[in-house]
Design a protein around this nucleic acid. Structure first.
Lengths: 123, 123
DNA sequence: CCTTGACCTCGAGTGCACTCGAAGGCAGAG
DNA sequence: CTCTGCCTTCGAGTGCACTCGAGGTCAAGG
């Protein structure tokens, strides 16, 4: 089974515009298959891939790096160590960022507590 | 004691350019005091404020909202409930985003485990 | 007196990641 | 045969958050 770009957009939560953009910018593993009319026809493998790169994006990986990762996958078997290194470097950055955000959030929550007290006093 | 913009930049981890930009864009509580020569002179209260808005920024609050928060603080006592609402809304967004990132990271770590296996097989 | 260096303002430029619009193709419904 | 609607490409436009550079001021040091 295959999906139109509108259906793929619906399923992935991206817009059709963004799906085309990702493809032309080299974020897809391979170019998406086309129907007789030249329309994109997404299959499950495409959706799985889009889901992965969306997770990479949502965790802050720049387009540039997603592109790099896609190029490695496109290049085929043999560069697993490089893919691993790329993902692990990303993982480290995400963990660090998570810690940072948690810690900043703590400070903000402290501020919230203070305002909470102030607002209660007023009531 | 007061600091030059270079010292303030050093202390806050922002650049002098960014400090000026924040000020002209209305992110400061108040305009920074000036020396006789017209140079900015940052005091501890300024640094504390910058530290707060940096935390807001680092947790993903848009400049627009920081500006709004600064305006409330500038307006003086009486709008604590609004400030609280703004910060709590931000807190909710950050918590949600934290969950999302954690969950996506889980999926990425799963992928890493797979590559880890593949790379080990190869060795 | 002159130079150096840190600061000033203003406005333009940059990088990123989309986001949109114009102009056109093609299949199916009436 | 025409209309509707979804798709196509290409290139330009947008929003955000800086980031930079030009041209100028001023105080201190030599």
């Amino acid at each position: 089974m295959s999906l139109t770009i509108a259906e793929a957009a619906e399923r992935t939560g991206l817009t059709a515009h963004t799906l085309r953009y990702y493809e032309r910018d080299g974020l897809m593993r391979t170019a998406v298959r086309r129907s007789a009319a030249g329309h994109r026809a997404y299959d499950e493998a495409d959706l799985t891939w889009i889901s992965l790169i969306s997770k990479l994006r949502a965790t802050g990986m720049p387009i540039r790096d997603v592109k790099l990762y896609a190029a490695l996958v496109r290049a085929g078997t043999g560069n697993e160590a490089e893919r691993l290194a790329l993902l692990e470097a990303h993982r480290q950055r995400v963990l660090q960022q998570l810690d940072e955000v948690r810690s900043h959030l703590g400070a903000i929550e402290h501020k919230i507590q203070i305002y909470h007290g102030a607002v209660l006093d007023r009531a």
